[in-house]
Write a protein that binds this DNA or RNA. Structure first.
Length: 126
RNA sequence: AAAGCAUCGUGUUCUGUCGCUUCCGGCCUUUGAGCCGGGGGAGGAAAGUCGGGGCAACACAGGGCGCCAUACUUCCUAACGGGAAGGUUCUGCAGCCGGCGGAAACAGCCAGUGCCACAGAAAAUAACCGCUCCGCAUGCCGGAGUAAGGGUGAAAAUGUGGGGUAAGAGCCCACAGCCAGUGCUGGUGACAGCCUGUGCGGGUAAACCUUAUGGGUUGAAAGGCCAAAUAUACCGGAUCGCUGUGCUGAAAAGUACAGCAAAGAGCUGCCCGCUCUUUUCCGGGGGGUAGGCCGUUACAUCCUGGUGGCGACAUCAGGAGCAGAUAAAUGACAGAAAUCCCGCCUCGCGGGAGACAGAACCCCGCUUACAGCGAUGUACGGCAC
RNA sequence: UGACCUAUGGUGUAAUUGGCAACACGUCUGACUCUGGAUCAGAAGAGUCCAGGUUCGAUCCCUGGUAGGUCAA
């Protein structure tokens, strides 16, 4: 299902703080990916999208980038469904670039990031 | 005829697939924030946060000083630094008059104080040159009068003409300008016209200030309610035993360690057993963290029409329900249609474009940004040359 | 969300009753030196973030905007 509901978003302030404090990061311009295995009782993989206000002062442009990223995640999150141990993750996608991206180029970048994430996860979990 | 400029209006539409949010209805022996169906889902500025109000908490006898804001008049409004109409000054069409527009922090330097660089004699109770008179030591002299002329400066003592005088001067007169008047007429009023005057030394209040009016402070992360886990004030019940040694103490007693007993908890459905604790266990419980709910979208609401008013606006009748998110939704892709731009083989075809910008408690304004399209004004008449 | 502050040569800072925009470092040229540094002498480099207004005159006063920053939570 290509949904993106409330339970798939990372909303809790304590979880977000834990993600930024303890999470591992991957980077491929212009996206930085932060990930951390979620707790045992987590029901779904949760995602946080962030676009810095410093780089885009206008709310319209920040909304535009977040909508593009959200759409890409919605179409491609199937990749992250079959992780060993059926564990769930907490993810953070931060847009570092200074220009509004194209949908197609950004989609290929995020797919590459997800592939590296799966490799790293398998290595870390043994 | 039209570019530009100013003001006002408008601020693309439709279909399919996949998604988000909210409300309503239905379904279920997987009762889940599940599935199915239907409705709503950014703006004219949502922006800047510059005024004002609602709302909320706190403060508050009354008065004065201070501080801040506002400043032609009348009206509109819940209120405003907003708006309407009018007045005055400046200004555009264009040389003049009318007419039509545009702009104005537009109270008071005739309340007081301060400041006005450089230049200039002098920057505000002004004699440097000049002009006139007087004196005798006859000079590059001294004294007195004089604001008409000179140059400086952003600004020089109201302007023009006449009288007057030794020379001059609002010293006097006429016209003009300014100022004043419990003045007259018109107007609700700002003000306008007229009359009168032993009136006539500039500018600056976005200098201090004076006068008048208004202002309590803080902002929804305000404020109210519910409340997990952990710890715990307090309350109730159970238990807090015996022996030895040490410490404090006059004693009662308190406290630490060790042993025995007992109780409680955990491992379990029960027993044994083991482990832990001994002021501990069980129950209640207030404040309150994470988190959640209310505040929060139904009203100074919008649309249509009537009535009153020059108008802002008021009022009446009928109709409508019009975002409600919260690490924060309102989207992505594809295809049509209309509009605009460019090119060409010009009934058409091909290519391209759609600005400024995203609600965060809610309203009323203001300011700023803005592609394209539409409307109005600029863009009238007379006289003179 | 609310409350404030700042903007001046390349860099860091001055400039008060509103009256010629100043200083240090840096840059450039010359001297000294075998060469460089240090030192000495000299020069260039701004019209004060932008647009209006008040005033004879604005870095300074007022209004609007732009950019950067601070504080509360």
């Amino acid at each position: 299902m290509q949904t993106f509901r409330k339970e798939e978003r990372l909303c809790s302030a304590t979880e977000i703080n834990r993600l930024f404090r303890e999470g591992r990061s991957l980077f491929r311009h212009p996206i930085k990916l932060i990930w951390l295995p979620a707790g045992e009782d987590a029901t779904a993989t949760k995602l946080l999208i962030s676009v810095p206000k410093h780089n885009f002062k206008q709310a319209v442009k920040r909304n535009r980038i977040k909508r593009i990223i959200r759409e890409i995640y919605r179409k491609n999150k199937r990749m992250l469904a079959q992780l060993p141990g059926n564990r769930k993750l907490n993810l953070g996608l931060i847009y570092i670039g200074k220009e509004i991206p194209e949908y197609n180029t950004l989609e290929s970048i995020i797919i590459q990031l997800f592939q590296r994430l799966i490799q790293d996860y398998e290595k870390a979990s043994g």
